[in-house]
Design a protein around this nucleic acid. Sequence first.
DNA 1: ACCTGAACACCGTTCAAGT
DNA 2: ACCTGAACACCGTTCAAGT
Lengths: 224, 224
Amino acid sequence: MAAQKRLNREDLVTTALAVADAEGLEAVTIRRVAQQHDVTPMALYRHFPDKDGLLLALADRLLSGAVLPEPDDRPWYDQLRDLLAAFVEALRPHPNAAVLAFRGMVTTEPGLAVTERALALMAAGGMSVEHSAETASHILGSLVALAIVAPGPPPGADPEEGDDAVRAKRATLLALSPRRYPYVVAAAEPLAACADTGLYFDRGVDMIVSGIRDAAGTETATSR
Amino acid sequence: MAAQKRLNREDLVTTALAVADAEGLEAVTIRRVAQQHDVTPMALYRHFPDKDGLLLALADRLLSGAVLPEPDDRPWYDQLRDLLAAFVEALRPHPNAAVLAFRGMVTTEPGLAVTERALALMAAGGMSVEHSAETASHILGSLVALAIVAPGPPPGADPEEGDDAVRAKRATLLALSPRRYPYVVAAAEPLAACADTGLYFDRGVDMIVSGIRDAAGTETATSR
DNA sequence: ACCTGAACACCGTTCAAGT
DNA sequence: ACCTGAACACCGTTCAAGT
């Protein structure tokens, strides 16, 4: 991509992310990233210990895109909703790379920051340490899943290719037996690409938050 | 593993799954699976079109482990809970391979069967086609995430290795600054490995179902 | 300190050939 | 029909060397 005087760690991560967005995570390769910087593959080893190091840096980059809202005095669940929305907003543009966030939640600085805030808010909601720890890994995992399976064309790739993928997926679903899969066939359109992606993510976050409120409520109810 | 007279597609998938469980998905390789059957790598191409075909078959195997409960006359949300519980039960033993389920939901027969039943139950709950389609990909994705991030040693690998991983993870979390990450440090133990894995999955399913009930409720409320 | 070049052990996969 | 063997283009990575 951009040939420059000095190889730079951040720039390498940037092109790695670009490759992932455009061609999928399996296309990001030491040799490929090196080539895009007109450099020998071995040059990358000055900046990352190994390929796993590159991928970890990619996870870090991904999660550092989340700008966490400052704590305020609204109810804990409203603050949690905003936190989760910020988190998912960072992953949303990069569905191909989002899988990396599974590892990154506890191994990168921005991942830990999100986890910390989520734990604090659930504690404010009256959840026990054990329950909120469980719930944290659950909800953050769910949000990553939300970004991965988001129906519709991935925002990173070129729109032409994306539309082709959507068309193909819809066609596959419509080709199914309506006797065996009546509901799937009827829902082929929204399953292939949801009408409003923003709404998709908002609803996902809402569902998670209301699930947590119920869980926190029952815990408080049974504990006294 | 087992050397036999004739190469068998199902047996190949079985050893592929075993490799994934023991050493991770990146260890399952055409050459590796072939070697375990004392056969040339090329022999696998009689049974799968390419490596992707192997992985797809692996996804199919994974999802076919779910024994779907028969429809009955209980409320839709109780049936949905049982459906999701059956689904997650199939993924639970194979956290390393569970990522494949993301693709398999709409590309394998057992994946479509689960999606079909989920859509039917949400329709019974009064959800629109669009909303239930969105929600289906959300909740099934969440369950896959649940299996992937389940804290604690993976059930597939040998226990010694698993305990080492848990110990290492706990140590990493405990080494963090308690000033910056007070809640994470305090929750290091349950984050590294939850006390009761069964409870972890039950709560995950419950949270999802209660989230859906809320979503279905507000939709019905606003639509009239 | 930062980058190169050759080399090694691994991949997936094609093609022609064996039985 | 099913499997083999050699070959090719790709990986990640080590090691010794250049500036």
